[in-house]
Amino acid sequence: MEMLHLRYFVAVAEELNFSAAARRLHMAASPLSQRIKDLEHELGQKLFDRSTHHVTLTAAGTALLPIARDVLEQVNSIPWRLREATEPQRSTVFLGMPAGVHPDLRDRVTALAERVRERFELKRWPGASPDLVDAVLDGRLALTLARMPVTDPALEALPAMSERLGAVVPADQFAGRQSVSLAELSGFAYLAAPEDSTPAYFEQLDHQLMSLGIKKRLKLANTGYSGVSEIISSGLAFSISMLDEASPMHLYRLENVAVLPFTDFQPELETNLLWRRDRGDSGDLAELVTAAREIFAEPLTS
């Protein structure tokens, strides 16, 4: 049995969906399914009941899940335990930073770095939330800010900031307006941000908008936030982004783009500070986590 088999099993067990687990593992669903079958054959136990629409754990799968998680956590802890035993007292550690972090939240990261500078050199590392979370789990990052939702029992989360979201619309078609309703946007296509940088929360928003009457969709490939702004400026679609003008996301706005609050919809993007529970409770990051709890004690809002 290889460690990868356990990683594959845990991903499928947590997602209960082979396609979703394959995306999480950055692989195709077909080889993932074959690896699970290989593991079942080696163990002599059926781990999942599969049907066309549902995947559920068998009794054996349910029993294996905590064992597999424990083994993976022990393996993942080897790098930081080794560093703890061999590195000098002042360590360089990295904190993940997703795109568009609000300046007030950046100030708290700076305050944390200053608080712990005698023990840690805290450096920032950019990336998309899923990749940053993976880097925390495998020990490459000490902590990360991440857009919610993120659910993993190996992680501990501290609420850091809640940001109100608004409708990004063509300004000339909403001139003089201070707000907008969903009904007024039903004639526009909804344009999501690029998939490689979109927080998972925006997938939930997409489903909410569909249920609330926004049926048209427009997707862009091989472009970034500036491309989204270009389409909105042309009057072809609307999107959703941070409402606070202090947010770095407003730097992508073109001249004919405005961000308005909704009158009948209250989307909010939550950002948490995450770290591995075993490293923070009594491991090598205990001192850093204690300082982080103090700096981030009161969640920010915007």
Score class of each variant (00 low, 15 high):
residue 214 I to S: 02
residue 191 L to E: 07
residue 203 E to R: 15
residue 205 L to P: 01
residue 207 H to Q: 13
residue 191 L to H: 02
residue 200 A to D: 15
residue 220 L to P: 01
residue 207 H to M: 06
residue 218 L to G: 04
residue 212 L to C: 01
residue 192 A to P: 09
residue 213 G to W: 09
residue 218 L to Q: 06
residue 191 L to I: 12
residue 220 L to S: 07
residue 209 L to Y: 06
residue 219 K to C: 15
residue 189 A to K: 03
residue 205 L to Y: 07
residue 191 L to Q: 07
residue 213 G to P: 03
residue 215 K to M: 05
residue 195 E to A: 13
residue 189 A to M: 07
residue 197 S to H: 08
residue 186 S to N: 08
residue 190 Y to G: 01
residue 217 R to L: 05
residue 201 Y to M: 04
residue 225 Y to L: 12
residue 226 S to C: 10
residue 205 L to Q: 07
residue 202 F to W: 14
residue 220 L to M: 14
residue 226 S to L: 13
residue 186 S to W: 06
residue 206 D to H: 08
residue 202 F to V: 11
residue 190 Y to Q: 00
residue 208 Q to I: 12
residue 215 K to P: 01
residue 205 L to N: 06
residue 200 A to H: 15
residue 192 A to W: 06
residue 196 D to M: 09
residue 215 K to A: 10
residue 187 G to I: 00
residue 197 S to W: 04
residue 213 G to M: 06
residue 209 L to G: 02
residue 191 L to M: 08
residue 196 D to W: 14
residue 201 Y to L: 10
residue 221 A to L: 14
residue 221 A to V: 10
residue 192 A to I: 05
residue 201 Y to R: 14
residue 215 K to V: 07
residue 205 L to A: 03
residue 218 L to Y: 04
residue 215 K to F: 05
residue 225 Y to P: 03
residue 194 P to T: 06
residue 209 L to K: 02
residue 198 T to W: 09
residue 213 G to Y: 11
residue 208 Q to E: 14
residue 220 L to D: 07
residue 204 Q to A: 10
residue 203 E to K: 10
residue 214 I to Q: 04
residue 189 A to P: 03
residue 187 G to C: 00
residue 209 L to F: 08
residue 205 L to K: 04
residue 221 A to Q: 14
